[in-house]
């Protein structure tokens, strides 16, 4: 703060916010439009990293950044890359069949109309509901966030955590069962 003026600092903060939003949404757009599925997974990694930066900078949670990077950007995407590699050469490029009704231009025109409607609804909600509350994010305070999170996770949400563990176990066993080769009867 001492090196540069306060106004320049605020301008740079807004520039960072704008760049981060452009980076995240642009990567997401490329992830669904690029022809090669391999490249789509790579763009998905960039999207996930952008969301992780939003967690760190604007949700003030370094723990969520770490989890997002390890589980999402590191784990799920590598799983996807392996699935593409194991699915043969044809799986790497998406064949464009003549689905005229779901043409890109039409779907994005529909998406734009949805966006306008959603922004209208959002502004109405803002008028009706958010004005009753403080609509700005609270400034950071020096509190023990991660310790508090751990305490909440293992006391208030302990049952949820247990159910989640069983769900992950079931998912792992289910995927192993799906992928294992059929054993021939001897």
């Amino acid at each position: 703060m001492a090196l540069i003026g306060t106004e320049l600092f605020h301008a740079l903060e807004y520039l960072v916010l704008f760049l981060l939003i452009a980076y995240t949404t642009g990567s997401a757009f490329l992830a669904v439009t690029v022809k090669s599925v391999y490249h789509a997974v790579l763009w998905l990694i960039f999207t996930l990293l952008g969301v992780a930066m939003i967690f760190l900078l604007y949700a003030e949670s370094a723990l969520l950044l770490v989890i997002q990077m390890i589980v999402y950007a590191g784990g799920i995407t590598i799983l996807m890359l392996f699935a593409i590699s194991l699915s043969g050469k044809k799986a790497m490029f998406e064949e464009q069949k003549g689905l005229k009704l779901l043409d890109w231009r039409l779907s994005f025109a529909g998406g734009f109309i949805l966006l306008v409607i959603a922004f209208y609804i959002l502004s109405q909600v803002n008028l009706a509901f958010w004005q009753q509350q403080t609509t700005t994010i609270k400034p950071s305070e020096e509190i023990e966030l991660i310790g508090n999170l751990a305490r909440t996770l293992f006391t208030v949400h302990g049952g949820t955590l247990l159910v989640l563990g069983f769900l992950l176990l079931a998912a792992m066993l289910g995927s192993v069962y799906l992928v294992k080769k059929e054993v021939e009867d001897i």
Partner: peptide
């Protein structure tokens, strides 16, 4: 919780795809 659910969903989904 959502990230854990997404991980489970991706594992099962990719298993089904394979």
């Amino acid at each position: 919780i959502s990230i854990a659910l997404a991980a489970a969903e991706a594992a099962v989904g990719l298993g089904i795809i394979l």
